[in-house]
């Protein structure tokens, strides 16, 4: 790229171990505003761990993650939690909605935590449900939704705060092919519309094909790709 803007998120030399298992050894990644990056690689290569480190869910053992120039490890626990709520959106494979809350309440939750009034929060949440074509599920609980519907609601919740970056870990992994492709389309389209960047973990090459760029992880480190400068 000729005039690449400053990266919004960058990670360098990320190491992370769980007991004896080394999940990441020197992984690195840079993300520009609005960019869609796919992280691929074999099972156990550290994709989820890297995503959790990038999103500030996990702190790496060593290495630095910076968001808008600020080191994540320099933030307190509560500041990082708030960052995830406001500036990041997170979509997991499944089981991320509160089972007791309705779809509308699930989507409104981050706004309520920000101190928005309930009617305001509900109105914004309802708009997002409509946008993701699940408006009719507003009063439905996740247990009564299909997998595809639940993912759309989860995407709505991730986007409701207009985050700068959406992190998605195998968002279509628990869905059948057709439903999965639809949900993926929705995710990519919606993040593009809000100009949020998207980090997409997947082991599905078709999913990776919709991304601007693909990063391949192997044994906890990024493989040099064909598009990389030598």
């Amino acid at each position: 790229m000729i005039d690449a803007p400053e990266p919004i998120l960058s990670a360098h030399g990320i190491h992370k171990s769980f007991g004896r298992t080394v999940a990441l050894r020197g992984a690195a990644l840079e993300l520009r505003p609005g960019e869609c990056v796919a992280i691929t690689g074999p099972s156990g290569s550290g994709k989820s761990t890297l995503l959790h480190c990038l999103a500030g869910v996990l702190l790496p053992d060593s290495g630095v993650v910076t968001f808008r120039g600020a080191r994540l490890d320099g933030l307190g626990v509560d500041e990082r939690t708030r960052l995830r709520r406001i500036s990041f959106g997170l979509v997991l494979q499944f089981g991320q909605l509160v089972p007791e809350l309705t779809a509308l309440e699930n989507v409104a939750l981050p706004l309520l935590l920000e101190g928005r009034r309930r009617p305001d929060a509900a109105a914004v949440a309802a708009q997002w449900l409509e946008r993701l074509e699940v408006g009719q599920l507003a009063t439905t609980r996740p247990t009564a939704m299909s997998g595809g519907e639940a993912q759309r609601v989860a995407i709505a919740r991730a986007l409701v705060t207009s985050p700068d970056i959406v992190f998605a870990d195998e968002p279509t992994g628990a869905l059948d092919t057709v439903t999965g492709e639809l949900a993926l389309d929705v995710l990519v389209k919606a993040t593009r519309e809000t100009e949020a960047a998207l980090v997409l973990v997947t082991h599905d090459n078709r999913v990776a094909a919709v991304a601007d760029r693909e990063v391949v992880l192997r044994d906890g480190a990024v493989e040099p790709g064909p598009g990389d400068p030598a």
């Binding site: 999103a55 939690t81 995830r84 406001i86 935590l113 919740r157």
Partner: peptide, 8 residues
């Protein structure tokens, strides 16, 4: 997941 999505 609640904590990961920013619920303190």
């Amino acid at each position: 997941a609640l904590l990961a999505t920013g619920v303190p």
